[in-house]
Design a protein around this nucleic acid. Structure first.
Lengths: 107, 107
DNA sequence: TATCGCTATATTTACAAAAACATAACGAAC
DNA sequence: GTTCGTTATGTTTTTGTAAATATAGCGATA
């Protein structure tokens, strides 16, 4: 028996950040490309594009910096604000997991 | 912006207790009937039956006491052990929510 | 032994979410 | 002004999950 959890952040009752979106952001940060990140996560480009745009348009500061066209076709980069979001979310999630595991010992 | 969470308990990596199952157990406790509980939660009887049986067969003590046939066709009751499970799960869940909301203030 | 409403379970149908497919637009570099 | 790989976005197809449907079994009570 073990306890599991998922946390996410909502803005106006719609999903803003959750586990999957964080994975995606991290992969974009690594590859500098929405399409490469999608492929690496076995996700369709379209879905990745939709999720990333939802994040970007809900955040109060830009999370993505996109380059459309150009010598290599373009690319996508995570802003320092975006990197902060990733870190803060992961910290919150880890705190939750730690808390729950401690509580669950009393189960 | 607000933080949301879902917690659940797994046994052998398969779901044992989660939010939906707890709702269902509570409704069975109220109605003394699997079919009435399912209807009240707008769930098919079959799904309720499957979930409740999964719970019952994974728990180390019986959670349900079923009466098949009989003057009113039968019914289903929650054992004291089952009632304890409900209460403990809800306590754990509430603790998690409270913890997360406090943490989220630092966001 | 007939009834009644509940549990038990298989089969079919419907639907929504995801994937697949297709195609346009972009702009730096050569 | 052609090429290239990326972002952008609409349309169609697939698929996996849930609901709907159907039917059998049960047993206390009258």
């Amino acid at each position: 028996m073990k306890v599991k959890s998922r946390i996410w952040i909502e803005k106006d009752n719609t999903p803003f950040l959750g586990y999957g979106r964080i994975q995606l952001l991290k992969e974009v940060d690594k590859t500098h490309s929405m399409s490469a990140a999608a492929k690496s996560l076995n996700m369709s480009y379209k879905k990745a594009w939709r999720l990333l745009n939802e994040i970007n348009s809900s955040a109060k500061e830009p999370v993505l910096e996109k380059q459309i066209g150009g010598k290599d076709g373009g690319g996508t980069y995570i802003t320092p604000y975006g990197k902060g979001l990733i870190k803060r979310f992961e910290n919150l999630n880890q705190a939750c997991v730690t808390f729950l595991e401690a509580e669950f010992k009393k189960w």
